[in-house]
C-alpha cells in the first residue's frame, strides 16, 4: 500500500486539524446558543482526534488510535451529561442563551 505521507505531507493533516480546532474555538466564542457551543466543542475534540490518528499512522503506533477511542467515550459521556444539564437549564430558565446564564457568580 502506498505510503500516504509521500503524497500528502503530515504537516497538511496537522494544519487541517488546527484549522478545524480554531473554527471550534471561534464557534465557542461567537455563538450564544448553547447547543451550538456544544457542537463547537465536539468539533474541537474531533480536530484533536484527527491529529492523533495522523500521528499514530505516521509513527506506526496504534496507541494514538486507542486514545481516540477513549476520547470518543469521554465525548459521548460528556454530551449525554451536557445535554441533560442543558435540558434542565431550559426547563428552569426557559432559555439556552449563555448570556442569560449569569447565575454563576452566586
Amino acid at each position: 500500500m502506498a505510503q500516504i505521507f509521500n503524497i500528502v505531507p503530515l504537516e497538511h493533516f496537522i494544519i487541517l486539524s488546527l484549522i478545524l480546532f480554531s473554527i471550534g474555538v471561534i464557534g465557542v466564542l461567537l455563538r450564544r446558543n448553547m447547543i451550538v457551543v456544544f457542537m463547537s466543542i465536539e468539533l474541537m475534540l474531533n480536530a484533536v482526534n484527527l491529529m492523533a490518528v495522523s500521528f499514530s499512522a505516521h509513527k506506526g503506533d496504534s496507541a494514538g488510535q486507542v486514545f481516540v477511542f477513549f476520547v470518543m467515550v469521554v465525548a459521548a459521556a460528556e454530551v449525554a451529561l451536557g445535554l441533560a444539564i442543558l435540558v434542565m437549564i431550559y426547563r428552569n430558565v426557559k432559555s439556552i442563551d449563555i448570556n442569560e446564564l449569569k447565575q454563576l457568580k452566586w
Binding site: V25, V28, L29, R32, I98, K102, L104, K105, W106
Partner: peptide, 14 residues
C-alpha cells in the same frame, strides 16, 4: 470581570 456570564468566561478561557 466575574459577572457570571458564561460567554465572557469562555472568552477569557480561550
Amino acid at each position: 470581570i466575574q459577572d457570571g456570564a458564561v460567554g465572557i468566561y469562555l472568552f477569557i478561557f480561550a
